[in-house]
Design a protein around this nucleic acid. Structure first.
Lengths: 335, 335
DNA sequence: CTGAAAGCGCTAACAC
DNA sequence: GTGTTAGCGCTTTCAG
């Protein structure tokens, strides 16, 4: 890499002159500025990022820690984060926790040595289940800002981006009730997560408020050890009368739809299905799955904005919680 | 952040003593080493990454530039890259080119200022179509190593990780022929890409070698402007006799399957379908889609290994081209 | 208008 | 066994 020193030597001026000239300083003569800038351009000079960071104590880099990339929600969030960060002149260093607390801790530890200016993260499942958040509190105590999104922890005082999980599930369930459904089942692969519990509560609330709904709520929680397809087969076998399905994760809705069609259910005539996800490749179903859209791009974008505002001290001192609106998108699997 | 200087002051020793003590130098007394290390631990001292990088001229960070994250292939490759890099003590800075040459150039430009030690990338579609590779040649000339994967350019002399695209499509087509299929159609959303062309050639070769195959090859190229579903509708309408479909991208196979089932085709009895992709969420079809697996994880992993070997000067001077084996996985949509 | 010098945090050759 | 010094590449104050 070309350095200031090399430019200075070639031009027979001092390093500081070169530096100033490159910044179009008033102190430097037009002539010198031009000579310096020409040579710099010619040699493709680029200021060394590490030197700048060391001097300024800023890296212009954000650490992003997500539980998984293969999950479409996080992939899209990551895309949004990268896009917005890049727009604002920041790079992102991405780490994947694979839903493990240890990896999450480790990544945080490794990056909190001046590698990044702050963090954007969504908690690993294990972190949420065990409710361990000390590793994040430590960062905040060191004044390293953190923005949590989607999978947040209540007892951490930092900026957060969430959706109204409770309200979204409530609204979707309401819709199924309004269709006149009498046997509405909830399927969840994420009961362990904060967002899963909130969504389930929204479903339960809506049912409890429905005066002419007689069935008991049915919550089918699918764990990692379960075979989703088998569980859904059982569901249809055990609940012949099911006429509404609310899937609160982003894959089980599609599987339920396939299974239902295979079993001869008329969708949406005799069975409505609503999934929970941003529009994605899974939308390649026929009929198209109705879903609650999370506006994932906005979530990622908002997280970056909050973090950068925080870095620039533009935020109020108290934590900001930003709620991104969801939208019930009725496609082909609802009436 | 705690610095060496602060430790030194608290212990009334010099900065270099502290530095040496932390590295367990022979020169330093056991006693001092212990005192230093205890305080360091107590204050959670972490050596400043920027300072280390500036000194060593190494960042322990890899730049990763991919065309998209929403494409499952690249998401999985990114996952593999992150996993392997992390295992080897490297971070990754990820940039998304969104299939645009300008963004690809820009990311390279922005990161080649000492931010990363080398690059792993897969070319943007625009880059491949226009066959512009000067921006990569520039890096190599500066001795910044680059590893290309999947979407490579022949005229760039660097390490590469590819699959045998031609052979994979050839083998899949052979399989359809062996099933006795007489009207095999190829669907491609990626005809503009190097890998797409290679796969198509594999299909054409297999057909041309089949002595008792009488139909002309049918290559259906779907561009971004086309509506995939409409194209497939047309396909079935125009080619009633179709009894084999080879999809060489990673989504059209699923759509074709859905459409075929909807139209009443018996799959796999009267129609076989083979997709091209790693196993993924799209496998949630019924029957399950048979695919050519690309072993995406291995691809990402190999790319990291090549790059790190190159950085450690462990590679031979000449470029290494690593070909990852594919595997035809027969599931439910083939006999 | 230009240059010298200090310092960001760290390492390492070289004193003492 | 410990300390001094120089230097990685850069910015910035202060001298000239």
């Amino acid at each position: 890499m070309v350095t200031l020193k090399q430019l200075a030597e070639q031009l027979n001026v001092s390093v500081s002159t070169v530096s100033k000239a490159l910044h179009n300083s008033e102190e430097i003569s037009k002539d010198t500025i031009q000579r310096v800038q020409e040579l710099a351009k010619h040699l493709n000079y680029r200021p060394n990022r590490m030197a700048l960071s060391l001097k300024s104590n800023k890296t212009k880099t954000l650490g992003v820690i997500i539980p998984s990339i293969l999950n479409h929600f996080f992939a899209k969030a990551l895309y949004a984060i990268e896009t917005e960060a890049s727009k604002q002149g920041y790079n992102i260093i991405t780490c994947v926790s694979s839903e493990m607390l240890s990896k999450e801790k480790n990544s945080l530890q490794l990056l909190s040595n001046g590698s990044v200016d702050g963090f954007i993260m969504s908690l690993a499942e294990e972190t949420q289940v065990k409710n361990k958040t000390e590793h994040i509190a430590v960062l905040l105590k060191q004044n390293i800002p953190v923005v949590l999104f989607d999978r947040v922890a209540d007892d951490i005082e930092c900026d957060k981006v969430i959706i109204d999980d409770f309200g979204a599930a409530y609204e979707a369930t309401k819709h199924l009730l309004d269709e006149g459904r009498q046997y509405i089942v909830l399927i969840s692969e994420i009961e362990e997560l904060s967002v899963g519990k909130l969504r389930t509560n929204g479903y339960l609330k809506a049912l409890s408020e429905a005066s002419n709904y007689t069935e008991e709520p049915v919550v089918i929680s699918v764990t990692k050890d379960d075979d989703l397809e088998a569980v859904i087969d059982t569901l249809f076998a055990a609940n012949k009368k099911v006429d509404g399905i609310l899937s609160i994760d982003n894959t089980s809705g599609v599987v339920a739809l396939h299974k239902a069609l295979k079993k001869g259910y008329q969708v949406p005539e005799n069975l409505s299905i609503i999934g929970f996800s941003d529009d994605n490749v899974l939308a390649f179903t026929d009929p198209k799955l109705s879903t609650i859209s999370q506006h994932t791009f906005e979530i990622g974008q908002a997280a970056v904005k909050l973090l950068i505002d925080r870095l620039n001290k533009k935020s109020s001192p108290s934590p900001i919680i930003k709620t991104i609106k969801t939208k019930l998108i009725l496609r082909g699997t609802t009436k």
